[in-house]
Amino acid sequence: MSLEDILALLVSGVTMGAVYAMVAVSLNIAFKPTNVFNLAQGEFVMLGAMFAWGLMTGWSLPWLAGTALVLVAAGALGLLEERLAVAPLLANARHHHGWIISTLAFSIVVLHTSDRVYGTDPQAVPPVPGASLDMVQIGALTFSTQQVAVIVLAALSIAAVEWFYRSTLVGKAVLAVAEDRDGARLNGISPLTLTMGSFAVAAAYSAFTGVIAAPLVLASTSIGMMLLVKGFMALAIGGVGNNWGALAGGMLVGCVESLSSVSATPGYRQVLLLAVVLALLLVRPHGLAGARLTREV
């Protein structure tokens, strides 16, 4: 295999890795104030891609306007999910992990409704303004500007999320709720508003991921579950709650996947990734960088 081939595989691995990292970060955003791992998160990525197709290709809206509409719609659906499938369960302590079932159920409804509405064929979505899908060659490196755009947007958005948690009052409030829901309430923070906000933002962020990934992976209703699993793998490797860890984990998953595509068929590739994640969870249960979250008696 030539250097050009390896570099091309790495570029596509890093690009997909950036997408997985964004999915992982959206999982983190919803997880922070609730300790709920939203199993419908992958379907919001799918919805972002399908909405973008409908608005930009179907209605020919310009990219920025289309994306703004997609984010608002997805945010509203995220809010709906929180109200329908999460809040009633968090309010009742007897439900334990009931949210696993309810968010899964929500994702099933979203997926199969989308199948009815959009059909199951993959569709093309226009690239980010200024970028294109045409291949550019610089030395041994071949890439498209859309790939570069995805990587840059992923890094920038993760930096923005981190800045938000560290430097804004609302962000710190979310971290306080994550630490101790009742304690935060006593300090005048409303966990309810923050939970609703986090779900809406996480859904919008997922949808944004769908909008910028769709030109590369094509928009189809079946991408959600796959992206949820890869996002989870990135999260498991990077450590739950750790956004930069998610980026590193995403890159690792993306590169293992793309480099192994040379000699392995899709089935073996999935088995390989699953084996890597299982082995890692056995050795480092809280991720490569994750700290132990203790919850005792």
């Binding site: 791992f37 992990h97 696993i100 699993v229 899709p266 089935g267 999935q270 990734l273 699953l274 994640v277």
Partner: peptide, 25 residues
């Protein structure tokens, strides 16, 4: 050792992998 929601995702990944392997093997 881990919270049981990890298991949900591992089982989803396993289901996808099994389906893909049936065609490969």
């Amino acid at each position: 050792r881990l919270s049981s929601w990890y298991f949900v995702l591992i089982t989803i990944a396993f289901t996808l992998a099994v389906t893909a392997m049936l065609a490969d093997l």
